[in-house]
């Protein structure tokens, strides 16, 4: 996983509520056994017309937003299916940060696991950042994770909250399996105690 420290990049505004993960990456593209290569189909139904040509009205088909690294939306971003293909598709497209007034839980979690920083900001602030984004190529936003601020094109700063453990993992680009396995002794103890207290818990063994 790539580290996330300070990101300066183009932001794209997608002023919609309830953008579900089916919209971010439709199910027919989930047949891959890899994490990469999904960017071309990110937002497929919004990005392409029925004949396969690009929809020029969709923000990510417009300059400079084809190179967007930050995406700003309204409430409940990433609702629906748990598919991690959604953050994989965003990442493969180039998105490293998503900003919204609220997120669906699983998507929020999946973002962190892939080095994408999800930032929760009140809707009026998101509207301001969307206005910044619409200023085009000169309107870069800076996401400063160590200081936990979004720096707007006029230099003003918007603070944001982030879970300390998740911040640490992002800053260091660490996966959390290694972290958890440092507690393997505790897991073993838990398993032993439970096997004694609840011996009736069945094991799944096929004949």
């Amino acid at each position: 996983m790539d580290k996330f420290t300070v990101l300066t990049g183009i932001a794209a505004a997608l002023p919609e509520e309830n953008i579900d993960t089916d919209k971010i990456i439709p199910a027919r593209f989930l047949k891959t056994t890899k994490r990469s290569g999904l960017g071309v189909n990110a937002f497929d139904s919004m990005r392409y017309r029925a004949d396969g040509s690009e929809n020029p009205d969709f923000v990510l088909n417009q300059e400079p937003y084809r190179k967007a690294q930050i995406l700003i939306t309204f409430d409940n971003l990433g609702c629906g299916s748990s598919r991690e293909h959604a953050p994989w598709a965003l990442l493969d497209f180039g998105i490293r940060c998503v900003i919204a007034p609220s997120f669906a839980d699983i998507f929020h979690n999946n973002c962190f696991k892939n080095g994408i920083l999800p930032i929760v900001l009140p809707r009026p602030v998101c509207e301001q950042l969307m206005a910044d984004a619409r200023m085009g190529g000169n309107a870069r936003l800076t996401i400063d994770l160590p200081r936990q601020v979004v720096i707007r094109p006029d230099g003003s700063e918007v603070p944001f909250e982030v879970d300390p453990l998740r911040k640490k993992l992002l800053l260091e680009g660490l996966d959390d399996i290694g972290q958890t396995l440092q507690h393997e002794k505790a897991i073993e103890t838990f398993e032993t105690e439970r096997a004694q207290a609840q011996p009736w818990i069945p094991r799944i063994v096929l004949d």
Binding site: S82, R83, E84, P87, I106, N109, N110, K113, N114, D175, D176, I177, T180, L181, E184, I187, E191
Partner: peptide, 15 residues
Amino acid sequence: GIGTSEVEHVMATQT
């Protein structure tokens, strides 16, 4: 429901 990174986490740690 969990994402695929967590699927791997559960496979490796049962937690």
